[in-house]
Amino acid sequence: MSSVPSAAAAITPLRRLAVASTVTCSAQASAYGQCILATYTDVRKDACKEEFARFSACLHQVMKRKW
């Protein structure tokens, strides 16, 4: 249970991921989203693997860690 003030809340890892995925890497995110949009009636595992790899690489770079 955390009762951190809102100023400190801005730097939680989840917040950083949020910013990274929607602001910093928005171009790659958009490309990935468009790919899903094009295939969502027949989506399967790794249908948009390349697009996500680019998105993910950007995230890793911004977050300065890998997962």
Binding site: L17, S21, T22, A29, I36, L37, F55, L59
Partner: peptide, 15 residues
């Protein structure tokens, strides 16, 4: 998973 969350966020926005 982080990847899934990030992917969902991208999909939500586009879709």
């Amino acid at each position: 998973h982080r990847n899934t969350l990030a992917a969902a966020s991208a999909i939500y926005k586009e879709l």
